[in-house]
């Protein structure tokens, strides 16, 4: 870890995640695929981190392990000091339910529920949620609450997904290629929403992307390649999404 990094973390030294020596091996038939080859990583409260890498670099695997969707083959991940690698299936479910918000490339909305209900589905099972309307207002969809996914554009659907992710007031927001399926104008709207959530709610946000431009809006950028972290850089003057262009 560079000294440069520690200085930027002065006021946010509460460590959310601590990952040490994570490896992940997938058995694909008779072939073994090493997705992660020993990753050490710390994530801090309130920061916006971009995981940057080509496809196959292991970034999704890393995100899934952090989010409790997958388990590491070896190594340890702790969340606020609690070891996720030792957690049972039931504990991981409860962990995702209480602490993590997810945003996916393909939105994964429930088509049979309206925007509001897609958010409610999560707030109904959360401990201290915000009102669904409030969450939708944050992502700029206050006027589309009664629309079904089929009646919304891709960008709007992704913003509903963000609203759904933040409505339970999660400690961490994990976004896997949130703009991957969107054109750049729509993508920017989505990034705006993420940036606003991070700024206003202080939610630790991790965004996976292979689009280097997006990295400019992060506090820190973690470069992954071939299952290893190759570089971690901090943005001294991070840009707002409206300043980005691709």
């Amino acid at each position: 870890m560079s000294t440069r990094e520690t200085t930027t973390r002065e006021d946010q030294n509460s460590k959310v995640f601590e990952a040490r020596g994570i490896t992940k091996v997938y058995e694909m038939g008779e072939v073994q695929v090493q997705a992660l080859r020993g990753v050490d990583l710390d994530l801090y409260s309130g920061e916006l981190v971009v995981l940057l890498g080509a496809s196959g670099s292991g970034k999704s695997t890393l995100l899934n392990i952090l989010g409790g969707l997958d388990t590491a083959t070896s190594g340890h991940v702790t969340y606020h000091g609690k070891d996720l690698t030792e957690a049972t299936e039931r504990e991981l479910t409860s962990y995702r339910r209480s602490h993590i918000g997810f945003v996916f490339q393909f939105y994964n909305l429930i088509p049979s529920l309206t925007a509001r209900e897609n958010v409610s589905v999560v707030t109904e099972i959360a401990a201290e949620p915000m009102r669904p309307e409030e969450a939708l207002a944050i992502v700029g969809l206050g006027d589309r609450v009664n629309h079904f996914p089929a009646q919304l554009s891709g960008g709007e659907q992704q913003r509903v997904a963000i609203a759904r992710a933040i409505a339970k007031n999660p400690a961490v927001l994990l976004c896997d290629e949130p703009t991957g399926a969107l054109d750049s104008a729509t993508g920017l709207l989505v990034l705006n929403a993420l940036e606003r959530v991070n700024r206003e709610l202080g939610t630790t946000t991790v965004v996976i992307t292979h689009n280097a431009v997006i990295a400019d809006m992060a506090d820190r950028v973690i470069h992954l390649s071939d299952g290893l972290i190759t570089e971690i850089t901090s943005n001294q003057d991070k840009k707002t999404p409206s300043q980005l262009q691709w």
Binding site: R96, R97, I110, V121
Partner: peptide, 9 residues
């Protein structure tokens, strides 16, 4: 998707 969002089995 719901499981990911924290719904139990």
């Amino acid at each position: 998707s719901l499981r990911v969002l924290g719904f139990t089995r």
